[in-house]
Design a protein around this nucleic acid. Sequence first.
RNA 1: GGGCACGUAGCUCAGUCUGGAUAGAGCGUCGGACUUCUAAUCCGACGGCCGUGGGUUCAAAUCCCAUCGUGCUCGCCA
Length: 586
Amino acid sequence: MFRAFRNEVEAALADALSAMDLPTDDLGVEEPPEDVPATLASNVAFRLASEVGAPPPKIAADIAGEISVDGYDYLDHVDTGGPYVNFHTTEQYLADTLAAAGDDEYGRLPDKDESVVVEHTSANPTGPVHVGRARNPILGDAVANVIDFAGYDVERHYYVNDAGRQMAVFTWAYETFDEADLDSEPERDRIEYDLVRYYRKGNRVLEEGDPEEVEAAEAEISEILQGIEEGDEETYARVETVVDQVLSGMKECLGRLPAEFDEFVKETRFMFDGSTQEVASRLKDSDYAVLEEEAWQLELDEWDIEKKLVFLRSDGTSLYTTRDLAHHEWKFENFDRAVTVLGEDHKLQAEQLKAALEILGNDVGQLDHAIYSYVNLPEGKMSTRAGTGVDLDDLLDEAVDRARDEVESRLDSRIRDDELDEDDIERIAHQVGIGAVRYDIVSKQPTKAITFEWDQALDFEAQSAPYVQYVHARCCGILDEASQAGVEPTDVDPAVLSTEAEEDLLRTIARFPAVVETAAEDLEPHTVATYTREFAEAFNTFYRECSVLNADDEETQRARLALVDASRHTIANALSILGVEAPDSM
RNA sequence: GGGCACGUAGCUCAGUCUGGAUAGAGCGUCGGACUUCUAAUCCGACGGCCGUGGGUUCAAAUCCCAUCGUGCUCGCCA
């Protein structure tokens, strides 16, 4: 309802301003501070002061007097607070909010009939997913969720880099070394932990091995790369043996979050179908192409990019970005929009990609990047190759373990007699543990760097997943008790919800669809996390002050129950956008 | 060195794009609230030259310039 109210406010204000012969280009509509009893306000009077030649409070009063609320459903009346014009809602606003939030899909915006492909994670299949990379699936999944919830048709893609040098190195190492050559046991009983040892061994040999050995290896690696480039089936099969095995393990790990994908798109696909070479030849014909030292490159000065983009090596083979160009043209053919979630280390490459796509004649307005900063350890960077870093599996295990300890230690002091059994404890431990990890990462602005610290990531109090999840569990508890007592959230008179706590909660619920809309537009799911905290605060105040089952009369009982039902839908949907589970009890 | 980010309470962060009402949370510290729909909760206190210096503006945490600090980046790697 907030969105509808905002539209009404803008329309009413614009009408009044034009009736007064004043400009309507900047309405200055904003949410007032908490202690102001208005839902929206306008600061337009400040800007008109010099033009009109009157002090802002006078102008505000004049505007307020000029505004007509006739014909609006939610705009009740207008007054001023000094220089501000304040807009107040009708009873209908709260009534309609309560009714709308009775739907368990509340917050989902109308279908836009527009398809969006969200590419995220796309980590090279070189080994276990570490925490440094984990920001990508967690952020990416939330970005996809919020766009989905905002009414778009979303597909989630993982782009598999199976044609790069790293995979050639991996393939060579996998075929060259035996178990006996490796100096460690797998850290975990899963395929990518087993195989990454070959990759690390291979890289060590390339860095430190004797020159003859390295030379032979490089020859082999280059042969593999050439083989793929030429579409040689046998080479492809050798590489995919490694790729598919490692990837299958990584999928399992990501599945624990869970981050699921609709499609794993391999880059070799765009080599074998000829589109990469086709893109390269179109680029060669462009005005921006230059041949320097036998390598084809693009001059991107026009895009303020100093670095030239090499799109064909001197031996004629393609590079990662060349294939990615073909990949993106494929996306543009099949989807209305493409969103890619990338680490900041790929930012320059992403800008070059965009420029090159423009040169190729694409509408780059279809492409958006969500860029995030890396997650580092206090002691430095995480690297699969070097084997430094915390594995995501270990983080999730630790999170679930700590959550389980927490649940068990709280068992004795539980008031609620719902008799949690072993399965419940395990369920709650998973929901809370994994939820806490996701929430910790998704709730922060993506541009800010994160230094990973165990205690901080696994703090179960305060501004964390459990704090918000607890609200959901409380809702479920009340709804459960109510249903046993035979109270139904039907035949409700919203006007009964007249205390400040009830009204605040309802107003917070009303804002949810607007939060979804903005988060989707800006690709910033962390604003949904901020909202869940504000929501939890409003709900907890209501919980403290307004008993549902012990309310004075049945009418109040029913109305409050409807409010709890609406709250549950709101917080469940907000959490689901964040990829955090909503426990029925905890 | 060039480019791009980031710098807000002791700590972790919202707010910055789109300037506007006394800068908000949590953790920690201190003090309160469970015979009550779940205390993973709530209430209160303490805590801020919004990195620094200039500028624009009626108004700056927010925009511009400079500067310092941190991160990323500047391969015929991905």
